[in-house]
């Protein structure tokens, strides 16, 4: 197995892909957002409960590859108890991680565990797998509810 493949399928990703955290429907969510990648058919629903401009709970359901499952799992873990304004920052940082050839150290440190998804950089067609839940999150944050967001 080569280095790029090893970087893509790190243990954390395999683990979260097979056993995604927060994989459930949320009772009484404030926001529900579908995310869909028509290229591969990956489909997920993101649930957020928000109070006082803070994400107090997050979960998701859906079907997809290891990358999109792990990305959703890791994202929902991270954004729980996060102020909405910071979640926007986190979205930008994550976009930077997966699209820029050499993301700055500051961004890597800020993203912490989420950097395991940086390996998709070397697999252009798989970047959308990693960003699918994040686009759903962004749509929630923009108060665009009940609409399907697409990675296209």
């Amino acid at each position: 197995m080569n280095d790029e493949l090893r970087a893509l399928y790190q243990e954390v990703i395999i683990d979260h892909g097979r056993h995604p955290r927060n994989f459930k429907k949320l009772d009484h969510p404030s926001y529900t957002q579908e995310g869909y990648n028509p290229l591969c058919g990956d489909r997920l629903t993101l649930y957020l409960r928000i109070a006082d401009n803070k994400i107090i709970d997050a979960s998701f359901e859906g079907q997809g590859c290891a990358i999109s499952m792990a990305a959703s799992s890791l994202m929902t873990e991270r954004i729980k108890n996060m102020p909405v304004t910071e979640a926007r920052q986190l979205f930008d940082a994550f976009q930077n991680l997966v699209t820029q050839p050499d993301p700055p150290k500051k961004i890597r440190e800020y993203l912490g565990k989420l950097t395991v998804l940086g390996g998709v950089r070397d697999f252009p067609v798989r970047i959308k797998c990693a960003t699918l839940p994040w686009h759903a999150l962004n749509a929630c944050l923009n108060n665009i509810t009940k609409q399907i967001v697409s990675t296209e």
Binding site: L5, L39, C65, I67, F123
Partner: peptide
């Protein structure tokens, strides 16, 4: 593994297959 993960790994081994809905959802 999901078909897309299969396809990515196979590609790195020189094997080109299709993964997805094959335009037949």
């Amino acid at each position: 593994a999901h078909p897309h993960d299969i396809s990515t790994i196979l590609d790195q081994q020189g094997v080109a297959i299709r993964a997805g809905h094959h335009c037949a959802m």
